[in-house]
Nucleic acid binder design. Sequence first.
DNA 1: CAATCGTGGCC
DNA 2: TGGCCAAGATT
Length: 300
Amino acid sequence: MTATTSTHTPPASLHTPVIGWFEQHARDLPWRRPEAGAWGVMVSEFMLQQTPVSRVLPVYEQWVARWPRPADLAADAPGEAVRAWGRLGYPRRALRLHGAAQAITERHGGDVPSGHNQLLALPGIGEYTAAAVASFAYGQRHAVLDTNVRRVFARAAAGIQYPPNATTAAERKLARALLPEEDERAARWAAATMELGALVCTAKNEDCSKCPISGQCAWLLAGKPAHQGPPRRGQTYAGTDRQVRGRLLAVLRETVAPVGQSALDAVWDEPVQRARALDGLVADGLVEPLADGQYRLPLT
DNA sequence: CAATCGTGGCC
DNA sequence: TGGCCAAGATT
């Protein structure tokens, strides 16, 4: 067997330019500052799930000021988390973050756990977020596969414009193979590839002239062929239950006092869909029905 | 595995 | 104008 070590040696030819670019161009985001701590990192990761940085920034500042430790959030009502979530979208994330804070308080002495499996066991934390917190907050070596990193790898390594709709085993394998050996450098690499995807190797209007690895990008070298596979599923919104749920919850966020049926009926004229949406919010624990027929954000 | 789950800005 | 996209998780 030919003893080429290259197969098992992480490509420093990629690491060095990408990490170097990151050191020059990384945004100064509050959750990247040392004072953010693991809790700040975790709060930011929940908020950043499917929501742009620009919209997260002000809400993040309010959250960590109001609830500086997991126990502070755990001691407050889940409805307060939903209210403070504001218009970030996907409000179940607020509920799950509150639940995660409770679990951290009860099971981990109030400190965000550092183990990948411990993180995975918390509500609202999946494969990506567990790896992100372990990597960014604790400097561990994990493959951090978010939409940005997946796109960068799809282009640079696979030579295609967009990654598959769902993360594949091949992507995980590739991400692990590309991981630098040393923990801190691996964590740096994770943040750097993510930032590269967010700022340069974007979904649309990518700027290859600013890319530190354009000379090694399989997609660019192939002439940037257009996306082939199945169309990436667009998300309709107007007229859906999601829109109705959003309107209902917006009413409930405005006031601490319980809200009557009539105030909720005013947000949507179709009664069947309106009732279904409200039932869904109650089932999700986002809304609490009271005995007198009124509704409010959950106190417990 | 595919559907569901918010919201707003941009080209 | 409207489809597309944004640091996913859950069922």
